[in-house]
Amino acid sequence: MDSKSLPRRALLDTGVLIRALGEHPTDPRSADCRDFLDAMVAAGNDVLVGAPSLAEMIRAMAVPQAPSTNNIVVVPFDDQAAIVLGTTFPMVALKQLALKTGATLTYLKYDALIAACAIRHKADLLVTLDGRLSTQIPSSLRVASPSAFREKQLQLVSVDGGALVPPANGTKSSKK
């Protein structure tokens, strides 16, 4: 991950959290989610977990309290988040979005709850694998997938002596 481009404060959508915390070796996007979370914590940046995501993740009858640790913060859906939800994602807009995208209204409601938590708790970025809500999200909240923070792979070319170096450096070094 490119640590310089990481957001200071990002809320992770449920699909990202499940992949980042669990073991899904065959899921093609798990590595990106896991690496993004690891990089955020290593950089000391804030990772927000919306309380509705806890509800989606929990699959047991006896559940311990979510950990209170540095860097990873559970943020509640409180009265302020409810005001954001009601004004930014009104039901009329969600119904139109359901018709447009084919997503179920239940699914969109969960997405909207999570996005409202991100806005209310002043996240810089919502990290999600699903951009269905992005048309409805105000411009003050950016939306990106974990893979957007992968360091761009430099294209390697073969130069003098068989050493592999990036094209720009290769040009320079071959002139020396």
């Binding site: 499940i18 915390l21 669990g22 993740m57 047991a60 311990p64």
Partner: peptide, 8 residues
């Protein structure tokens, strides 16, 4: 996650 959500 292992305790609360490993079903995933």
């Amino acid at each position: 996650f292992r305790t609360a959500a490993s079903e995933w």
